[in-house]
Design a protein around this nucleic acid. Structure first.
Lengths: 202, 202
DNA sequence: CCAATTTCCTACCGATCGTTAGATAAGTGA
DNA sequence: TCACTTATCTAACGATCGGTAGGAAATTGG
């Protein structure tokens, strides 16, 4: 069987470079010309290897989630809830201000708003963030069942609250806030953790 | 002196409609065609009245800041720091989930990331957010001077922390989170307020 | 009524958008 | 060597991007 001409670039490396571009410019802000230039390949090579811009973004997002964004699942797997939240906050602070990649979080800034053409990408990111919050909620439910959190604690509320803090740190980082300052946000959130349940609703 | 043909549309109303478009699609995602269609005017009318896309955005942003975003300054003016933070959190929760306008916050989602052409708009938004945080910091400094916050409290850290929570709520809202859920985030943040100073650094 | 001024609209500008033909080059298997 | 397959490149596609000429229409002051 004929194998054809071998590819002259490393698909995985090229995808990683595409990730950097999407990460710093967002889905809409990253043009195909931006991407091919950074990836060091021509447009037809990009399309042959990755389909189209949308598919390329989705592949880059997958790579992000279990690469730079992998700390999230690592944190979820910690044995006690305090460790989960600590890890989540500290690692997130470092992740959104990492010196070797763009600041912020791809899942937040990839397409927080967009034109009609990118609507499905925006929805994908909404769904990913919701999934992360849902995972967090389930982890909190377990912690509540195991008596690790104050009686009356609401897992869904805790998950929404922590998600908001993480996303807020990502926005700060995207705006150029330093690692040290973002770490302080994480520390302050942790200093008040866990938020007591609303006694009025118990 | 000849006065010329009178304008057939209300500039202020048109600007408000442009604001809605930028708010929901972001600076890059909002095309001139989107804008003119929503504003009910033609392209030459838009350019004659507002200069260009960038100027239009800046004018819409000004309108946003002292319209839908006006709660921020209102909160800052509250007489005690508890009222400032309460108002800031609750009004923000309602503002980013208002039923009569797009969800989220223009200063966050207008251009969190973008291509090269929109870089100056992104920087403008970064500066606006930084200004808000700075205002907050000054308000906390005053509160500390007046003995309203625990000894050792750091005004800059408190401002960064609260800013992050507000921005996190905006991200949540942009993703479709309901008003009730965002309000719960505000309530939880308030329940733990104020975060105690880090005793290790005192 | 006429000149001056300003807004209106249609039609278009060059540049860039994402995407793809079509030809050529480089490899494999027979 | 020759067919086959796949990657490479240049060059282009139609659509849309932000922005603008140029002329008709509507107002004012004379």
């Amino acid at each position: 069987m004929a194998m054809g001409r071998p590819r002259e670039f490393d698909v995985d490396k090229a995808l990683d470079l595409a990730l950097q571009v999407f990460w710093s410019k967002g889905y809409e802000g990253a043009s195909i010309a931006d991407l091919t230039e950074t990836m060091g390949i021509t447009k037809p090579s990009l399309y042959a290897a990755f389909g189209n811009k949308e598919e390329l973004f989705r592949k880059a997002l997958d790579k992000y989630v279990d690469g730079p964004g992998g700390y999230f699942q690592v944190a979820l797997a910690k044995p006690n809830i305090r460790a989960v939240v600590e890890h989540m906050l500290y690692e997130s602070a470092d992740a959104v201000t990492g010196p070797d990649h763009p600041p912020g979080c791809l899942a937040v800034q990839g397409a927080l708003t967009c034109g009609d053409a990118a609507e499905s990408i925006k929805q994908e990111l909404v769904a990913r963030r919701a999934k992360g919050e849902q995972d967090l909620r389930e982890r909190f439910e377990r912690a509540i069942a195991e008596g690790e959190l104050p009686e009356g604690s609401d897992a869904a509320d805790l998950a929404a609250y922590l998600s908001a803090i993480l996303q807020g740190m990502a926005v700060q980082a995207a705006g150029g806030t330093t690692r040290e300052q973002v770490r302080k946000i994480a520390e302050m959130a942790l200093r008040t953790w866990p938020p007591p349940p609303d006694l009025a609703t118990v």
